[in-house]
Design a protein around this nucleic acid. Sequence first.
DNA 1: CCGCTCATGTAACAGGTTACATGATTTA
DNA 2: TAAATCATGTAACCTGTTACATGAGCGG
Lengths: 189, 189
Amino acid sequence: MALRHAVLAALLDEELSGYQLAKAFSVGVANFWHALPQQLYAELARLERDGLIAGREVVQDTRPNKRLFTVTDAGLAELDAFAAAATKPSFLRDDLAVKVQAADHIDSAVLIGQLAERAEIARAKADLFENLLRTMRGAAEEDDFLRHGTRIGPYLTCLRGLAFERGNHDWCLRTIGILKAREAARVRP
Amino acid sequence: MALRHAVLAALLDEELSGYQLAKAFSVGVANFWHALPQQLYAELARLERDGLIAGREVVQDTRPNKRLFTVTDAGLAELDAFAAAATKPSFLRDDLAVKVQAADHIDSAVLIGQLAERAEIARAKADLFENLLRTMRGAAEEDDFLRHGTRIGPYLTCLRGLAFERGNHDWCLRTIGILKAREAARVRP
DNA sequence: CCGCTCATGTAACAGGTTACATGATTTA
DNA sequence: TAAATCATGTAACCTGTTACATGAGCGG
């Protein structure tokens, strides 16, 4: 039951609607958790029912009305309890890694294509994260912001996302290089 | 349905029993996928039923008998098809990241403790991966092994695991440093 | 003799994914 | 005028996790 806490954590810094939350969780920016809109709407309903968040209706003319959610004191207490409990280890689950594991037995041209695709996605995400970080720290130097800024949580998770995507990118490119070198070596050894 | 392919990929290089597979998938070495023993036994049964792997009984005196599994031609074809299909993006799902996201609202002593714990786990895993890599390449230089060695798939996924755990470790330590500096700044600003 | 390793599962439950449904408004 | 955006969900299905079951040998 950790989607709960991910939603609470996301609502700490801004009041959001389900739709806005869904954007934050799916469109790239999901640097600390990933979830689909359907999960989020369901989870918001449960959180509100349990009194951990409170929603207020915002009536709009041109757009459909929306409900903005805030974390309640009970919600904060729940997050405290979550933070104090033992952290579950995080595991890898990546289709691309499975394909690379089988690299010696499958067509390497296909694999190289998929690695290139992933490298590009990783690069785009890294760029996005860099921009987000710049926006968050504003005019301040990074060290200064981290020492004295308010709300560094999102900044810290974004730093992790950035490092992760850079690692991804580098690994894809290196793997492509190795596979190509082997192909060349196989043709004229 | 990707556990299927992860199991197939794991069985490519050695004939394994369910028990041995389970060890490879749970005890640390899960650098390209993670799964529990129960999932694996169930998946092995399905794979055998579908003719993608073949099992042979090995009778043992002192130990209970076991069944060793090998990938069939149909299994290889299935892996080929999987490799050719579009790769699903991989997503982050980490309790610790959720806690860090909420860093501004929860007790930082607790958080620092959990980050230190995770840093230690990451360090241990990185060490393990380094040893695995050394074992895999044997006497050869890394470049040489990667260019001419057989079975580099597992080596490549292990490289990724290593980079991932190092990134994890660095991020945990850096985050701890930042949180401590902020605590100090709050006491005497 | 207690706990660990080998060896294989079943059953119930929680969590995540896919497919589908609706409908107005702005942008290309 | 077609497509994307805003806005919210339901239902069926697939996947992963937790809890439990069994039993022999080996090491401290």
